[in-house]
Nucleic acid binder design. Structure first.
Lengths: 117, 117
DNA sequence: TCCATATTTCGAGAATACTCGAAATATGGA
DNA sequence: TCCATATTTCGAGTATTCTCGAAATATGGA
């Protein structure tokens, strides 16, 4: 992940409605939710939500897929992992033994296949 | 961690200079860096940097400590871990087996003593 | 084709955030 | 005490972001 990608993702999450949306979708898991269902759950106007969903989509934190008349949104935890990895890159000047506790946070073994939850 | 704490932290990281500062301090590790050294490394005016450091401090992502005439800043990875934990809370509706890959990211075993790197 | 549903796009006003120069505060040493 | 260094605070201008109403687009069914 490059700096601008990280910035987009972090800026996206640093706004209350978008953070609420992301967490709602994390909870919803694989099924995801339609834009309408999200708007209703969070009591946000559909057009305002649409703007926020666009931001989250651009950042890669959520994925959109049209299903009939609705559009389903799902969280994309791959991006989340890449983000955390980026944030903790070169931790302690490349001496990871100095910060072992925190490095547990990042699954650096890359054993992950599907982060879409 | 509560929502507002997460919002402060994410908003703090969602700005280029502050993201640069945080990553610089993550790399610097335990020694940290003085405000002046950070300003020089990132080529930011000291007063502008000071504003950003205040934001990062408020969010708990960095810790400040006066040492003589200078003030040393260090990243605080405890806050980082709490943040990631918050973001992925209730992943997949509380069925973590559905999203095992990503849950590796969060060290839920709480075996960590010192996250200050 | 026509209509209802679902979502997005556009435009504008209000609020918030960023940056900078100038001035203030804090510390240590002569 | 006086001065130099290190950092922060203040105030203002500019830029960006957020929200909303209105209008546009896309889909599926009668």
């Amino acid at each position: 992940m490059e700096k601008n990608d990280a910035l987009y993702a972090l800026a996206a999450l640093g706004q209350e409605t978008r953070l609420d949306v992301f967490r709602l979708l994390v909870k919803a898991g694989n099924e995801g939710m339609t834009a309408g269902a999200i708007a209703e759950a969070l009591e946000v106007l559909p057009n305002t939500l649409s703007t926020h969903l666009a931001g989250l989509s651009r950042s890669g934190l959520v994925k959109a897929e049209r299903e009939g008349r609705s559009i389903h949104y799902r969280s994309n935890l791959d991006t989340m992992q890449q983000l955390v990895t980026y944030l903790l890159q070169d931790c302690c000047g490349g001496n990871p033994e100095l910060c072992a506790p925190i490095l547990k946070i990042v699954g650096t073994d890359a054993s992950q296949e599907d982060g879409s939850c």
